[in-house]
Design a protein around this nucleic acid. Structure first.
Length: 283
DNA sequence: GCTTGCGCCTGAATGC
DNA sequence: TGCATTCAGGCGCAAG
């Protein structure tokens, strides 16, 4: 599934393949994909006709196309979304949801098997759509405020992984990268945030950045810039993950079998030896 | 105000 | 073999 590095790869592809072009027409083939556009699918189609694309931007896992009108097309890929630039004559994808017909015979296609993703028009949202004002900066954003993040984390009364997944505190981190960074930083997911030391939070953020940077480097070279494979788990994950999805396999650091716990209706993978579960009064 | 948990969705994998 | 169930996940929103 697309996490921040994959979304950034898509953004770069849009920058080179779509920015500067004009949207001639739009077809919404599945209304659920524009469910957050409250004026409806017909309005979505009408408002975007003849609009020129002047930028491709990102915050966390959200992407938006800035339009010369000052509006923006805001999108999230959800679990299975893809944005593809294709010749208009190319065969239609099975889960094609929205088609933007661009100038020069090309399409921008939103393909999304599970329809957790979606698109909407943000009025005057070209710089920063108001719909995502609650989304924090991501850890590889130069303006990410580490001191403010640490202060906010300390105020929380929750576990450290819940904080990592909370997009209002820090954006762009999904379940996979959370587990990988926690493993690298030797922190258990249930560690209470109010007990975290500054140095531990710094180490954790460093590991988040490291896993994202690695994925970005690999993702940028191993995929067509506009194609992120989401049907099979993206290939490079299997090669480079230390903990996530590896139940029963040896921890790459100490050899102890990785364990899987149910967590927030999903999974958490830890090394029981490197990442011992915190006990009251002992960290 | 803060924290937690549900429901959305599809298809592959698993279970009987 | 075939049908039914489980699982995966990000996000918005309701409930606690």
């Amino acid at each position: 599934m697309p996490e921040l590095p994959e979304v950034e790869v898509v953004r770069r592809g849009l920058e080179s393949g779509v920015v500067g072009g004009t949207i001639e027409r739009v077809h919404v083939r599945h209304p659920r994909s524009v469910r957050r556009h409250v004026e409806g699918a017909a309005d979505f189609e009408q408002q975007l006709a003849d609009q020129r694309v002047v930028g491709a931007r990102r915050r966390g896992k959200y992407l938006w196309l800035a339009l010369d009108s000052g509006d923006a097309v805001l999108g999230h890929l959800g679990m299975s979304g893809q944005l593809l630039v294709r010749p208009r004559a190319a065969p239609l994808e099975r889960h094609l949801r929205v088609v933007f017909e661009l100038s020069e015979g090309r399409d921008l296609r939103f393909v999304d098997q599970r329809t957790f993703g979606g698109l909407l028009i943000s009025r005057e949202g070209a710089e920063l759509p108001r719909e995502m004002s609650h989304i924090a900066r991501d850890p590889i954003d130069p303006e990410f405020d580490e001191a403010a993040f640490y202060a906010a984390v300390r105020r929380r009364r929750t576990g450290v992984k819940r904080a990592l997944l909370d997009q209002t505190l820090v954006s762009g981190i999904g379940n996979i990268y959370a587990d990988e960074a926690l493993w690298a930083a030797r922190l258990h997911y249930a560690r209470p945030t109010e007990t975290l030391r500054r140095s531990e939070v710094e180490r954790l953020l460093d590991e988040v950045r490291a896993v994202m940077t690695r994925a970005l480097a690999e993702g940028g070279t191993s995929f067509d810039a506009l194609y992120v494979n989401v049907n099979g788990e993206s290939g490079y994950f299997d090669r480079s993950l230390a903990a996530y999805g590896r139940r029963g396999e040896p921890c790459p650091r100490c050899g102890t079998p990785i364990r899987r716990d149910a967590f927030m209706n999903r999974s958490s993978y830890t090394c029981p030896r490197c990442q011992p579960r915190p006990r009251r009064g002992r960290w």
